[in-house]
Design a protein around this nucleic acid. Structure first.
Lengths: 205, 205
DNA sequence: GTCTATAATACGATAGAC
DNA sequence: GTCTATCGTATTATAGAC
């Protein structure tokens, strides 16, 4: 077969690659890249270690594939911020969607947190290529809203950082959060309320 | 020599333990516990690997010693929150001190972030023993201020989480922050301004 | 495609000379 | 106290049968 024309993956290939990536998400997000082992991933996926390496070129290949696959859905809430909408509503909805993601996709959150915390050695290009343009675009949008007087003077870049930080905190530092809150109430509802009040206060003209 | 009476460490012992802990802070904070190696720590400290193990019982001993040594100074800003002071001033000062720490002690911030991100497997008891009582005490203080009507209704626990999240973000995710901001301005001044405005808006009665 | 067996290396820790 | 040399194990990756 001539090079450059990758064979179409069979049904079974797709299913196994999916199983491996899901297992890898579980293991990498809990232990980080170096702390994760192929043995753990293989056990979690229900496959043998050499079989894992039949589908991927190595540990790093799995990790990089995982990060780029998840990048798009991870950025969805920011993409959804609508230039036609009401500024305050759009931003508060974004906060809410990010907080929901921290609850529904904590593994993805910790996977990215682990990678960025260690200097993004394996995902730097993806960040420059996908995240940076989107970030710049949405910062320009917020700045535009400010210039129109529809938002008070604020720093778009640091506003977005604060949204990321406060929402992802509940996924990334979950062990500390649950220790400090105790096991009683559902933290999500109270966190949602708190963040809504905080960012609303900041966005009032 | 009878047990239970540890020999007083000599000057050279103190100095070498200090060099090792400083090197370990550098390496652990950048690569996490599993990602760090004794070879790296030894090279950074300018000592041989067996010499490292002469001063500490093993890799884990170094890590735990480091975490408990740093815990106190890491919590200093929260301790300094003064019940006698003006509520808004005290909280805004706390934000400022935490942000200064993210700038001045980014390695310490990343060390704790790495540990907590992975479920605090080696520092859980320290958190329960030192952090939890302090956290509860300061939450009660904020709740008291709210009950007095000196602060608007707010959730003390989640307020503190938001302060931690937003300030530590600049140290823990520095690689992403610097990528997105570009290399131009000093981020610290603008971050300080932004966080001051944000939390002030939330604290207005 | 999947497995068992194994190679190759990285790493934490120890032995023993000085 | 400090070093060189080395052990034992964990871990990534490959060989080769089926």
């Amino acid at each position: 077969m001539p090079d450059g024309a990758p064979k179409k993956p069979s049904r079974i290939q797709k299913r196994n690659r999916g199983k491996i990536l899901d297992a890898a998400l579980e293991v990498f997000s809990r232990h980080g890249f170096r702390g994760a082992t192929l043995d753990q991933i293989a056990a979690e996926a229900g496959l043998s270690k050499p079989n894992i390496l039949y589908y991927f070129d190595g540990k790093e290949d799995i990790h990089v594939t995982l990060l780029s696959r998840l990048m798009d859905s991870w950025l969805d809430p920011l993409v959804a911020m609508n230039p036609e909408g009401d500024p305050t509503t759009e931003i508060l909805s974004y906060v809410q969607r990010k907080l929901d993601m921290a609850r529904d996709m904590p593994r993805e959150s910790r996977l990215f947190a682990n990678e960025i915390l260690q200097g993004a050695p394996r995902i730097g290009p993806e960040l420059s290529g996908h995240l940076k343009p989107l970030f710049d675009e949405k910062c320009a949008l917020v700045a535009h809203w400010v210039a129109q007087g529809r938002l008070p003077p604020l720093d778009p870049q640091h506003l977005i950082f604060s949204i990321w930080a406060t929402t992802q905190h509940y996924a990334d530092f979950e062990s500390q959060v649950s220790l400090l809150l105790g096991a009683d109430a559902d933290p999500h509802a109270r966190a949602s309320d708190h963040l809504n009040r905080m960012f609303r206060a900041m966005l009032e003209v």
